[in-house]
Design a protein around this nucleic acid. Structure first.
Lengths: 232, 232
DNA sequence: CGACGATTTGAATAGGATCAATGGGAGTGG
DNA sequence: CCACTCCCATTGATCCTATTCAAATCGTCG
């Protein structure tokens, strides 16, 4: 792989504490590749051959069953996906596709497991990463089970708003279609949810949103750090 | 703690590969305690002081927000809960209460983190356990997002049926009220879902169910190992 | 037997999905 | 630069699912 990409990978929490030689070994075995948009990278049910790291672009995790499909998450630089399947040497539970042209690092899962056995610091970093993944999904699950569609949207807008600096403006980081699926609703329903939020100061112009009455929106949304929090 | 309980704890996947001395140390620091039914053991948002192991009885994990409440999972002997919060030294994301009189082992989280640092085998076991937890929640999340209430119930019945030996009979391992919440619906709706399944050979007598037409039920349920599978 | 909680049933409502049709850019090709 | 096309998003109408509220029934435990 190109060494210019190494620093950002190395600085990933997952890789930063491992030994130099083990990191070298991992990178030796890894592939760095650019994929076009809308390419299905992995399919649920397939054996986990690689751990993926998103270097540039964006990847959508999704799941299918019985003809239906739902977006499970989005991965942006610099983030990894399907770590659990790799560690367990199991099949993927989710499929993944590129949203845009994307540069991905693919680390063979054998090498991950191998070095995991030998590098204590790496093993510990993996635990932290896994625990984060776990807690993220638990929060999403709570979100879905405890809130209505409008509440989920309201809280999501507040989260994006905070992430993007809290200027009263925000940009949706994905299609409304994808956002709808991520929030567990149909595109039509998302559109109506935006209308429902209009009286709360939510103004939509394409994928740019302005929040003109944060207080009202927060009162409706009732954000909860144990669901919406970044880290807690 | 009582040494008669040690073997079953020791044989937990999480503890079985760690060194004897570290296991001793963990157990020295741990408390074994019996709690009455319906006692709230931990509350989401509280700091994670202990890792819990269910020795006898049953514990319900649940979450609350904004006045609503939902069952997130059930833990039976011998299983652990809230490992991720303990490892991250973070707050609990879920609350827990006993369903029945239950005997629990409480291991101070400091000791867990301490030995996790020192015992490589333990660290590895933790990764496996965490990966399992993660994949379980992902499956539950897929279940909720991709299936209707009736489908969720049908698949759940098939799973219990298999777990209990596949004799055509099964027993619900919890209240219908709790099952409903676990499946993300109201008790009333669960009752109606059972009625919907009657033409598919599902006969309900209290918490005892018989499945008289497995083929029809499976055709409706379309079970998917990537959602319903125990281990995959 | 009586009381209580859990479950079931019924009726009305609300929330979301589906189907169908329209509007609105972004990109393409003339 | 403009017209065309295509896809996404929105809107409307309707249907279906699930929730809510209310009441009846069942079962269990004192």
């Amino acid at each position: 792989m190109r060494s210019s990409d190494l620093p950002e990978v190395r600085s990933l929490e997952l890789f930063e504490s491992m030994s130099d030689s083990n990191f070298e070994a991992l990178m030796q075995a890894a592939y760095l590749q650019t994929f076009p948009a809308q390419l299905e990278l992995i399919t649920e049910g397939d054996p986990a051959d690689f751990l993926y790291v998103v270097i540039e672009g964006c990847v959508e995790l999704f799941a299918r069953t019985n003809g239906r499909e739902s977006t499970m998450g989005m991965v942006r630089p610099v983030g990894t996906f399907i770590l659990a399947a790799v560690l367990k040497d199991a099949v993927y539970l989710m499929s993944a596709r590129t949203c845009q042209r994307s540069k991905l690092l693919m680390v063979p899962s054998e090498n991950i497991r191998d070095i995991f056995q030998r590098d204590e610091a790496f093993a510990r970093a993996i635990v932290v990463e896994l625990a984060n993944c776990y807690r993220t999904v638990v929060k999403e699950h709570k979100d879905l089970k405890l809130r209505t569609a409008v509440e989920r949207l309201a809280n999501r807008l507040l989260r994006y708003h905070t992430d993007q600096g809290g200027t009263g403006m925000l940009e949706l980081p994905q299609d409304k279609r994808t956002l709808a699926s991520l929030l567990g609703m149909t595109p039509e329903n998302l559109s109506r949810a935006f209308n429902t939020l209009k009286p709360y100061g939510v103004v939509v112009r394409g994928n740019k949103i302005s929040l003109d009455d944060l207080e009202a929106l927060s009162t409706l949304a009732k954000p909860n750090p144990l669901i919406d929090g970044r880290d807690t």
